[in-house]
Structure formats: C-alpha cells, structure tokens
Design a protein around this nucleic acid. Sequence first.
DNA 1: TATTGTTATACTCTATAACTATA
DNA 2: TATAGTTATAGAGTATAACAATA
Lengths: 145, 145
Amino acid sequence: MDVVTALIRLTGLIQGIYARVSERHDLTPVQAKLLCVLLDGPRGMADLAQIFGVERAALTGLMDRAEKRGLAHRVPVPRDRRALQATLTDAGREAAAAFHVDITAELNRLTGDLTSDAGEHLRAALAEIIERHRAAPGPGGIGCC
Amino acid sequence: MDVVTALIRLTGLIQGIYARVSERHDLTPVQAKLLCVLLDGPRGMADLAQIFGVERAALTGLMDRAEKRGLAHRVPVPRDRRALQATLTDAGREAAAAFHVDITAELNRLTGDLTSDAGEHLRAALAEIIERHRAAPGPGGIGCC
DNA sequence: TATTGTTATACTCTATAACTATA
DNA sequence: TATAGTTATAGAGTATAACAATA
C-alpha cells in the first residue's frame, strides 16, 4: 500500500471513529467539534466560522441547534453590542468532556499496537507534516477534536 | 503534540485537501469518491451503499445527481431484473481520472518533505494501523480515494 | 419470504445574498 | 463604511419508513 492510499484510508478510519463516538454521545460530528472548541473558552460567531472554515451564516444554524438542545448559548459582549459569544452550558461542558475522554481513548487504541519506537516515529512524522502545512485551518480546527 | 491530536489534525488537513481538490474539479467530495469507486468497474446500488457505509436510499439521491450531471448512469442487470448497476459515462471516467491524478499529486506533496527513511516509516506505521483495523469500512472506502 | 431499488419525509450542514444593528 | 450576526432560500447528504417489483 502506497503512502497516499494509506493516508486516505487512515482518514476514512478516523472519520468513522469520530462519527461513531459522536453518535454514541448523541451528537453529530460537527456538534461534537463545536463543543470541543468551546471547551477552551467562549468564542465569537465570526471566530468560530473562521475556525470551522465555513461562512458566518452556517454558525447561526449550528448554534441554534446546540442552543435548542441545551448544550450552548449566546451571551452578549459588554463592550460591543453587535457581538455575541458562544458559551457552553453545564450540560454542554459535561457532554464535551465525556466526548473528549471517549474519542481520545478510541484514537489511542488505534496506535496502541505499535511499538513505542514506531509510535514515536509516527508521532514525529505527523507532527512534521502538520507543522509544514499548518496554513490550512480547515476541519480539524483547533486543539484535539 | 501527542499522537491523538496529530491524527485528528492530519485528518482535518486531508479532508480539507480532498474538499479543495474536489471543488477544483467541480465535484462534491462524495461525488468524487463515487466516481473513484466506479473507476474500478460498475457496482450495484446495495454494494455501493455498503462501501459508503450509508443506507441504500442515500445512494438513490447520490446517483440521481450524478446522472443528472452526466457523470454516471444506471444500467440493468441481465440475470436479475430488480438490480441496477451504477456505471461511469465517458465524461465521468474522464472526471474521475483527472481527479485521481490531482488528489494523488496533492497528497504526495504532503509527505514529500520527509526523508525517504521517515516516509517509509510513516507508510509502514499507517499500513499496520489500517491492517489491524480494516474491519471498519466507513468513508474512505475502497482503493485510493 | 427475502432482496433490490425507489419514494416520501424530515433533519443537519452548507453557501449565497440581502438585511439589521452597531462600530 | 466596515463589522457582527441574522434571515431567507437553495441544495447536498443522510436516516427512517413504507412501497414496488422481482427473486
């Protein structure tokens, strides 16, 4: 198997795991990612749109649904009356934390069979690839999820 | 950066590249994947649904759109009058081939900076991970795309 | 009865364009 | 004028459930 095929297959594998874990927590993959981003702290809508690589209008619907499900809410910003900040509710924080634990465990299982040497080689190679191409924000966004 | 974070970031990076290349060829990522799968030969609808990890009903819409765009069409199966086979048109075959060349080049650039030693280590590690978890078909499906 | 594929319906996610309110 | 966020509309992709035709 050549490296390009391996990369595509790996991506499919990880997307599948991400989708499965999300579903297990009764979240869509995008919702799960939103919660994980917000775990780092509140974010403005435009900020989130940039992180997700989508238009601002897409965030409106995303937050509407998260809000309807009681996972997040919008809070006004004191100094700028146009701006809103997406913030986790307590339920949202719990859901995000639980998801994070679960997805981390599942993905760790993926590399758990490698020798520690091979694991470190892999980690280093991936880190180098990401470092060199960090221009692309895209899906995958910030932090871990 | 730990290996789990690296895996998620890499997945985001590759999804972004896949989306960008698809768009460059005026395809959605799912359409691009459909064309790539069909490049290996005609497939039944149920077969495709299984490869894509979706319900059969989803394939109906997918093929409707591909057919409307002149990229693929359904051909009857002689021995089973219930069955249909999704087949590429000439335009679809050309689009699939062009996409394949492009995505392969883009993804090769991703690992092009690695030393040949590091590249081989990476390839081997990914191949082992995929081998051990090949149970999951999921998105990523068959072959390269 | 089981399988193949479709239709109908509903939901999530996304883009574009036009809009409001505030800076 | 520029920015933050929304609304309206359209389309892709998906699931579920019910259905038709054939095996």
